[in-house]
Nucleic acid binder design. Structure first.
Length: 850
RNA sequence: GGGUGAAUAGCUCAGUUGGUAGAGCGCCGCCCUUACAAGGCGGAUGUCGGGGGUUCAAAUCCCUCUUCACCCACCA
């Protein structure tokens, strides 16, 4: 098995962090120069890049550290170049001047996926554009007044009666002195605004399309900072886009050309890293032609070669693949894989693995000056190659042969498009193999209020702080330092103080892991709950204490490794239940239901092994007269079930299980160096004993009933009570006879006695258990009124249940249509309920008459 | 505009093919019973978002509405 560990170089985010550091120390990226800057980034990466690895280590992830990879490693970089060159040669990568999403702060293009649109309050400006023939004006509506400087037409719908006569005419574009045509295009929605749309092909994706159709000029009015450029009319040159907006509205108003201004909600596109409004901007960029790749990628999921878990994510995947757009892969950054393309003085482009190859391939003279493309590739381009680039591709390495295709990718749904989809496309293309068979999509961890964790919101929880604990002061400092928006510090401080008034206590890795497993149900987001984690921390303690008990009892004792032993009833029962637990855990793991698997462990360890088996073992171990073989069998079972359960829980609780295992292993005759190399437990039918299991279930019911009387009557555990039994079957008698010591010990009884058939019982508190009646004589123990209250409560409950069952059975259609089995069960149930009710009523009468 | 998911105990969440609603935390009693008080024992707590429908039977299947979250999309 290989669990591949590694990290990507997070191009934009990383470059931003380092640039911010430079700013803080009064330096600039451009001042430093490309090589020196990249050196700085590597330095930063060395210092901080270990954080993820450290967190993974502390969380006990058993990855293959020897094969850790980084997307900027030489090997992976080589794979990136290889893929780029091959795709280019196949015509699947091309360069073109297109509108891209331009980030005016970072000065780079970003892909569609990196743009996040959110609804914001804005305005809709209605401007009058005078008709050239002097016959009046038409009105255009816009949310971006400043772009009017780049208008090259006004469009109306071809069928729109109101404007049909204007088609082909021209309007005077205010403030610019230009004359632009009125065109007809289906794109216009006559219902919206005025029905006339200003067309700005260089600054709007739709308008670009319209412009293409009508052969309109592209008039770029922005600089790379989204300020007005020198091609625009003089008064606005150099102004920021929003300043220009104000002035343009003002100037149009002065000319009497503002018809009206309305409030308007609109989707504003922002860069997911910089959070500034991105501009559609005309630039040269590199693209991957994705349609042919997407086709195969869709098919691989359709035909089941790749399976998403949970399956409904496949629909999301298909939907995206269906409408996939070409992928803009060039970024105007320095941190990343530089595009392997060179230009000569004429701008002719040559693509190759390196400059030497390019010269050879194209027969370029040594003195011809070549200049490499300045841009780098989108980080996801290299991540898309992950499964095979990490295994040595393009070399056909033994690792590649052995581990590829891989088995499973574990990831969050937020990067299905960014990463999963692109891995599938690239891997199918270059390996003719799927990258992985299954994609396990888990939810995101959110904060206690359901907010997505983010550094800017200051609600991030570092797993290390949950493991080791952190003081409130340190947590506050951590959350409010290095902030991009320092004005939020107060707010963050307030909510941090609210949620963690005393900081965070140390919970340890195992508790943290178990919490995640338990909350990770069906790919849904996880609202992080400290209460749950506390509960699982206690669970770890429970396991620890149980181990102490076991060790205490087996140290220096015969545990039946080579000697004779005999298994008693509780032993055969717990072994049966252990098989059930093993089965449930295996099923949970197989189906990626780690919540069900962890629950099965929790239930078995706490509520069966600890609550019952350890307690049942005590009477025998403490019985000086008990047979040695039985005691040996008990010790053997105590320690073997514990050892098995440690192995069963080890993937969930790696640290505590390892630690305990070393203490326990000699008592089961093991000598392994680590629990990690032991066999994982598998359920074994042969180890089940249903009869023993049924007997112990009976014992448990009796004990619980007796405890109920004791608990409800506030009888101290220090005081032993006598138990009388009545009615019941031969089997009940056998069971009580064979298990007397367990009953007495666990229910704290001083005696158990069956009433003679005709014997009148003393006044007692009673509790029915199936056909059998438990009684605890009241004399000196039980308060009359309390017992009446207790019985009345039970009576009410029974009345309610009986009414329900009677209603059902009284319904002819139920009796006719329901499976005979179900009807029979209901009849039995009714009989039992009525029996219990009858007994309780009798008791009530009797006690009331006292 | 299209799509997905969610709504169950005070809180965080389970509930597999329809067949008596569960856990943890919290809450209420009692208890330091020599593994464990971060514990033990007992207990209370739900018109399963609303309304329809299918069915002998619905938290579960269908329709519809409400609320919330997320994803995708080019409406000036």
């Amino acid at each position: 098995t290989l669990w591949q560990m590694g990290t990507d170089h997070a191009g934009i985010a990383t470059q931003m962090v380092v640039e911010r550091q430079l700013t803080a120390s009064g330096e600039t990226r451009t001042g430093l120069g490309r090589d020196a800057f990249i050196e700085r980034v590597w330095k930063w990466k060395e210092e901080s890049g270990g954080t993820i690895a450290k967190q993974l280590r502390r969380m006990g992830s058993s990855v293959d550290w020897s094969r850790e990879r980084f997307t900027m490693d030489p090997g992976l970089s080589n794979a990136v170049r290889e893929v780029f060159v091959q795709l280019f040669e196949e015509g699947l990568i091309y360069r073109g001047k297109r509108l891209v999403n331009w980030d005016p702060k970072l000065h780079t293009a970003i892909s569609d996926l990196e743009v996040v649109s959110e609804e914001e309050n804005g305005k809709l400006w209605h401007f009058r554009y005078p008709l050239t023939d002097g016959s009046g004006h038409l009105v255009v509506a816009t949310t971006r007044p400043e772009t009017m400087l780049g208008d090259s037409a006004v469009a109306v719908h071809p069928e729109d009666e109101r404007y049909r006569h204007l088609i082909g005419q021209t309007v005077q574009l205010p403030l610019t002195g230009r004359t632009i045509p009125v065109i007809a295009d289906d794109y216009v929605d006559p219902e919206f605004g005025s029905g006339c749309v200003k067309i700005t092909p260089a600054h709007d994706f739709n308008d670009y399309e319209v412009g293409q159709r009508h052969d309109l000029p592209l008039i770029n009015i922005f600089t790379i900072d989204a300020a007005i450029n020198d091609g625009a009319p003089e008064p606005y040159r150099g102004m920021d886009r929003y300043e220009a907006r104000e002035l343009i509205v003002h100037d149009l108003d002065a000319l009497g050309l503002v018809e009206k201004i309305e409030d308007h909600k609109l989707k504003v596109p922002r860069g997911d890293r910089s959070h500034v409004v991105v501009e559609p901007f005309l630039t040269d960029q590199w693209y991957v032609h994705t349609a042919p790749l997407a086709e195969n990628a869709s098919r691989a999921v359709e035909n089941g070669d790749i399976e998403f878990v949970p399956k409904n994510w496949e629909n999301t995947y298909f939907a995206w693949m269906r409408d996939i757009q070409d992928w803009c892969i060039s970024r105007q950054l320095w941190w990343g894989h530089r595009i392997p393309a060179w230009y000569d003085a004429e701008g002719q482009v040559y693509v190759g693995r390196d400059e030497t190859e390019v010269r050879e391939k194209h027969g370029l003279p040594a003195d011809l000056v070549l200049r490499q493309d300045e841009d780098v590739l989108d980080t996801w381009f290299s991540s898309a190659l992950w499964t095979f680039s990490t295994l040595g591709w393009p070399e056909e390495t033994p690792e590649l042969a052995r581990f590829h295709p891989t088995t499973v990718l574990v990831t969050g749904f937020d990067i299905i498009f960014f990463w999963v989809a692109r891995m599938i496309m690239m891997t199918l293309h270059f390996r003719k193999q799927v990258p992985f068979r299954q994609v396990y999509v888990h939810g995101l961890v959110r904060d206690a209020e359901g907010q997505k964790m983010s550094k800017s919101k200051g609600n991030v929880l570092d797993p290390l702080d949950l493991i080791d604990g952190i003081s409130l002061d340190d947590l506050l400092a951590k959350r409010t330092s290095n902030m991009m928006q320092p004005q939020l510090a107060k707010k963050i401080e307030k909510s941090t103080r609210k949620h963690f008034p005393e900081g965070i206590a140390p919970y340890g890795t195992d508790a943290l892991r178990f919490t995640f497993y338990s909350l990770a149900s069906t790919g849904r987001d996880i609202k992080f709950d400290m209460g749950r984690m506390e509960g699982y921390r206690n669970f770890c303690n429970k396991l620890w204490n149980a181990a102490r008990f076991v060790l205490m009892n087996v140290e220096g004792q015969d545990c039946g490794i080579e000697s004779a032993y005999e298994l008693g009833l509780p032993e055969r029962w717990i072994l049966t239940r252990l098989q059930d637990a093993e089965e449930a855990v295996a099923e949970g793991i197989r189906t990626y239901r780690f919540d069900l698997a962890s629950r099965a462990l929790y239930e078995f360890i706490w509520h069966e092994y600890c609550d019952w088996y350890l307690e049942l073992s005590k009477p025998l171990l403490n019985d000086a007269l008990a047979a040695d073989a039985l005691k040996t069998g008990t010790r053997r079972t105590l320690v073997r079930v514990l050892e098995t359960v440690l192995r069963l829980a080890h993937p969930f609780l790696p640290f505590i299980t390892e630690e305990i295992w070393h203490a326990v292993k000699p008592f089961v005759g093991k000598e392994g160096a680590t629990i990690m190399l032991e066999h994982y437990p598998l359920a074994d039918e042969g180890k089940r004993d249903p009869a023993a299991a049924a007997d112990v279930e009976w014992v448990r019911r009796i004990i619980i009933a007796a405890r109920n009387i004791r608990g409800e009557m506030d009888i101290s555990m220090a005081r032993k009570i006598p138990l009388l039994l009545r009615s019941g079957s031969e089997e009940d008698r056998r069971r009580s006879r064979e298990n007397e010591s367990f009953l007495c010990s666990l229910a704290r009884l001083d005696s158990i006695r069956w009433l003679e058939p005709d014997e009148e019982p003393p006044v007692s508190a009673s509790q029915p258990v199936e056909g059998l009646e438990l009684m605890v004589p009241m004399a000196g123990l039980i308060d009359r009124d309390a017992e009446i209250a207790r019985l009345e409560k039970q009576q009410a409950k029974l009345d309610k249940n009986i009414a329900g069952v009677r209603g059902k059975l009284g319904n002819e259609r139920f009796v006719e249509n329901a499976p005979a089995e179900v009807v029979a069960t209901e009849r039995e149930r009714l009989a039992e309920l009525e029996l219990h009710l009858g007994r309780i009523q009798l008791q009530l009468e009797k006690i009331r008459s006292l």
